[in-house]
């Protein structure tokens, strides 16, 4: 991500230090992760020490300091989804993508995470890709959904 784009995002927030999290969120959603150079740029422009930025960027799960895949896959392993077979869904995704929760594949296509209840237990087992909910998953359906994003 180049500095011009980062500057644009910062300007949009009037360069206010209090908008730090908003700025980081925007960089994260456009770029899928927060490179060190970007953090340094943000710190310089907003006059916020790097220690603070680093703390925030590691505090919230929404931020990543390592490259993330183009598609974010979340598998719910909450209680309801668990009893309805979330493990099998997770296994299917792991097999299809070759990655485990917390990892990203080499082609930067998928990042996989588990979550504990997405709040729609009646649809369990639930899988979410890029914010879109896919309910009542079966291993076969899971593989099909993943294909859409390949």
């Amino acid at each position: 991500m180049d500095n011009n784009r980062i500057d644009q995002i910062i300007d949009k927030h009037q360069g206010e230090a209090s908008s730090l999290i908003q700025v980081l969120l925007e960089i994260q959603s456009e770029h899928h992760w927060l490179p060190k150079a970007a953090l340094e740029r943000v710190g310089e422009k907003l006059q916020v020490p790097l220690t603070r930025i680093q703390h925030i960027a590691t505090f919230y799960k929404a931020f990543s300091l390592v490259p993330k895949g183009k598609h974010q896959v979340h598998i719910c392993v909450g209680t309801a989804c668990h009893v309805r077979g979330a493990t099998r869904i997770l296994d299917t995704v792991e097999e299809a993508t070759g990655i485990k929760p917390g990892e990203t594949d080499l082609d930067l296509k998928f990042s996989l995470e588990t979550v504990n209840c997405l709040g729609c237990c009646a649809l369990g087992p639930v899988m979410e890709v890029d914010g879109k909910t896919h309910g009542k998953m079966s291993p076969v359906k899971t593989a099909e959904v993943l294909k859409i994003y390949e």
Partner: peptide
């Protein structure tokens, strides 16, 4: 941070 204002050390994660 507060006294030396150098920000050489911080916390990470939670």
């Amino acid at each position: 941070t507060e006294i030396k204002k150098k920000n050489a050390i911080g916390f990470i994660d939670r």
